[in-house]
């Protein structure tokens, strides 16, 4: 007689429930109308079921985004959990759409759902990938731009996970500075 192995039928719970959002840039609609919730999940298996089912970022059209956020946090600056926060931002060159974008995005998702930043994971609100003609962007959003220790932990671990060379710096910018900037660049509060 066979003994059932729980490993084969029990899904693996995640620390958090996550929501995947999709943004499609339709100029005839408002920004919020263009933002759609795709699905929520709270197990490893349900994450993969969703991930395996959707397009990779490199196949999305220009102006499209994916956002993965903790359940209850909307992927916008205005959300109470985001408004004091900021983001670690990775700007990719055009060549990297073919070489790195999809791999980086998957790695980002695994960092989030696996709680890779230990206690600093509590500071994570979500992650965003923007597909843009000038170059794609990846970001991890955190909840409070003053939490230096947590932000530095997240930045260092993230850079390591993506295998970014140590001499290539990535920057953290507050949403406040990003939303009020006048030029095309926002100053970095932190770099790793």
């Amino acid at each position: 007689s066979a003994v059932a192995n729980p490993e084969q039928y029990i899904k693996h719970p995640l620390q958090n429930r996550w929501a995947l959002w999709y943004f499609k840039n339709d100029k005839s609609k408002s920004w919020t109308e263009n933002l759609r919730l795709i699905a929520k999940f709270d197990t490893v298996e349900d994450f993969w079921a969703l991930y395996n089912h959707i397009q990779q970022p490199s196949k999305l059209g220009y102006g499209c985004d994916y956002c993965l956020f903790k359940d209850g946090i909307k992927p916008m600056w205005e959300d109470d959990r985001n408004k004091l926060g900021g983001r670690w931002l990775m700007t990719l060159n055009k060549q990297q759409r073919h070489n790195d974008l999809d791999r980086y995005w998957m790695e980002t998702l695994l960092c989030l759902i696996g709680e890779s930043f230990d206690e600093a994971s509590d500071d994570v609100c979500g992650a965003v990938v923007n597909v843009r003609p000038k170059g794609d962007k990846l970001a991890i959003w955190t909840g409070n731009c003053q939490n230096r220790d947590a932000i530095m932990t997240i930045g260092q671990q993230y850079k390591e996970r993506l295998n970014i060379p140590s001499k290539a710096l990535i920057g953290y910018q507050s949403h406040d500075d990003t939303s009020s900037k006048s030029g095309s660049t926002t100053k970095n509060m932190y770099t790793v």
Binding site: Q8, H12, P13, L14, Q15, V44, E45, W48, Y51, N52, E107, L110, I113, G114, E115, S116, D118, E119, S121, R161
Partner: peptide, 18 residues
């Protein structure tokens, strides 16, 4: 409380499991 942490190796193994 305890935090449920999964490393990338485990997460990737779950992708191909039945």
């Amino acid at each position: 409380g305890t935090r449920i942490i999964y490393d990338r190796k485990f997460l990737l193994e779950c992708r191909s499991s039945p």
